[in-house]
Design a protein around this nucleic acid. Structure first.
Lengths: 237, 237
DNA sequence: GCAAAAACATGATTAAAATCATAATCACTT
DNA sequence: AAGTGATTATGATTTTAATCATGTTTTTGC
């Protein structure tokens, strides 16, 4: 970890436009900006551990972070992949609880850390911001309900197909042969998202490739047939 | 549905002490109280459907409500059982989205309905209340993460054992032979909580009974051996 | 009190996915 | 450039749980 020399102020930060800070008023933004630190993280580094106390919130300026829980069998269940503009750790901070999950860098990242106090101060003073945070929490809750339902009621094949679609939605870049999922995930990490064994993911991905639904390009996956994946991801498609 | 003649004001409501409204200031509480309606619901009645627009929030004065999502295979995944003092529908309301789940009465209930506007008004004016709502949302989010992780990484037997422990924590009343889970749930509903098939629940419950972990008393389950269930619910117990 | 419908129960079979085992490939370090 | 460790791959086997089938018991509505 190193503090970057160029600590772009929040006011000028490009990632902010897509973030919770998008509509924070100028003076409040300056307060936050003054107290924050931009830190560069390399792939594999750990941002925080489940069970420790949150001392502030993280805002991703660039890069990808996996947020996951470690199950009692040692496997990682990935809750979400956080990218540019996403906040981390605010739910635990606002819930006044220890981190309910861990966070590790998946792709080299620049991440701002805003300490607890200034964050809470702005939250208390800026009602619009508080409302926005609340809204984000509510939305996340709805997503988690869907994930739980999918986990218990859908097959692994369906969930993997769905995961690939979601990933292409978020990280997809169009090419002439299809949409490339422009993020490097190991099969084990994909298994962690889907909630299955690594071997199962490997097998199913091979099957998808054989069926011309996807293709591999280096470590990345190309989605060739979105319709096909969508059909697979539904129950009675 | 009928509006009860005796519409206890929130100020005097006993359930309020355990609810989100616990610390709302007197004047705000009166505003809420004036706008609310207490409605009696019978088992099996539906409070709201997934996909419809929330027009306010529900507060359970008495009774039990199941909150669930209907999967594409038609099965219900129960997200939570809500009881006295619990609020329903506020996440969808605050997220400004359609209901992400449905709610149906499991045990005859008296439920207050607070319309959208007065609720949002008090939320905006009473910061402490807003903070408390936020905190509840954050806590729920952490619970959902655990549920997701359990769903993907634990066996059905482990999850059922865990479900019974949780139910006995919430609805348990001590008797001389063990702790009675004082709520009537069908095997299908238990399956909906665990996220499995009804037959599997029936089989496992018989197994648990054979192993003297539980017993049946009418439609209710008696927990005989909490330690045993706890051991079963862990991975390497 | 009786018929119909739910709910509960159990057996047999099938299907899905985990686990175990082994090997090939890749990617990084020295 | 070789060696080490991680990752990907594939096969065989086992386990788990779903599904299908059938029967019994309990509840509920008339």
């Amino acid at each position: 970890m190193k503090v970057q020399p160029k600590n772009t102020p929040c006011e000028l930060c490009m990632s902010r436009k897509f973030s919770l800070f998008a509509d924070v008023t100028e003076p409040h933004l300056c307060q936050l900006s003054d107290s924050k630190n931009l830190i560069t993280h390399k792939k594999g580094q750990i941002l925080f551990y489940e069970g420790t106390k949150p001392l502030g919130v993280f805002c991703i300026s660039d890069g990808v972070v996996k947020v996951y829980k470690t199950a009692s069998n040692g496997k990682e269940q990935i809750i979400r992949l956080a990218k540019k503009g996403d906040f981390l750790g605010y739910a635990s901070l606002l819930g006044e609880e220890a981190y309910s999950n861990s966070a590790t860098i998946v792709e080299d990242a620049n991440i701002c850390f805003v300490p607890r106090e200034p964050f809470l101060k702005v939250l208390a003073e800026d009602t619009a911001f508080h409302r926005r945070v609340t809204k984000a929490l509510c939305h996340d809750l709805g997503i988690m309900e869907s994930k739980l339902t999918d986990a218990t009621q859908k097959s692994i094949r369906e969930r993997l197909a769905f995961t690939l679609l979601k990933l292409s939605e978020t990280y997809g870049i169009d090419g002439k042969e299809g949409e490339k999922i422009d993020i490097v995930l190991t099969r084990e990490e994909i298994a962690g998202i889907v909630g299955t064994a690594t071997e199962t993911v490997i097998r199913l991905l091979s099957e998808f490739k054989k069926d011309d639904l996807i293709d591999f390009q280096g470590k990345k996956i190309i989605v060739l047939d979105k319709k096909g994946l969508a059909r697979l991801s539904d129950f009675y498609g």
